[in-house]
Design a protein around this nucleic acid. Sequence first.
DNA 1: CGTCCATGGTTAG
DNA 2: TAACCCTGGACGC
Length: 255
Amino acid sequence: MPEGHLIHRHAREQHRAFAGRRVRAASPQGRFDARPYGGRLVEGVEAVGKHLLYHFDGGPAIHVHLGMRGLFLRYDDPATQPRRGTRLRLATDEVAFDLIAPSRCETMGGEQVAALRASLGPDPLRGDADRGVAVRRLAAFTGPVGAAVLDQGVWAGIGNAWRAELLFLAGLDPDARDVGAEAAGRLWDVAVRHLALGRDAGQVVSDPAAPDERWVYKRETCRRCGTAVRTWTLAARTAYACPLDQPAELGRLAR
DNA sequence: CGTCCATGGTTAG
DNA sequence: TAACCCTGGACGC
């Protein structure tokens, strides 16, 4: 379930719990060597796109990627027994966070962290994201915009649900190519605004007035105009779009 | 209760 | 392109 907005939400919550504190670390499941981290001082927890980084004082970081099935469980009583299959537990005297079924949970040194950062495009939820770089990378992508936004090297943190809703909000057909700088900038601004709403709400927020609703994602008909939503496979995932509100030519015209 | 699918990404083929 | 990964929800029987 986790796209970038939820990863940032986890980072913020766990940063508050762990930063500046020493933690207990364990891998009840045994698939991660947590021993080097026990008693270590946490410098901070940050999100980069869909990646989580736990930084420790004077040692390598922990890199976590939840993939599609990973999740965190929070226990406000850190004495609670971890459930079966818990890959990693980090805890203070006040709270424990358990990591279940991540696609990645590994030690990562400084060079690897730098390489990870370099592999990712601007993240709309990071204050250090460069809008100019974001616009240039999207405009330079050779292929449909619906493939570009899922490419984490173009923009980091967008997943399939946000692809559908952000392209709707920007009025862009996912199949559109060469959308141009103006449309790219419009899409970026929509992403910055809505991902922040989603991070704060803990879910995809397509319409702040109706936070549980979507415009096209997993819908039969467009929530705005009632037209049948078109679904097809784009970049190996199901794309959703309204043929009326996301006309094929709009991206080009806006250029 | 079993099956299928998915808000992801890597790796093997 | 497919399979995989110690998941969860929806849905069918």
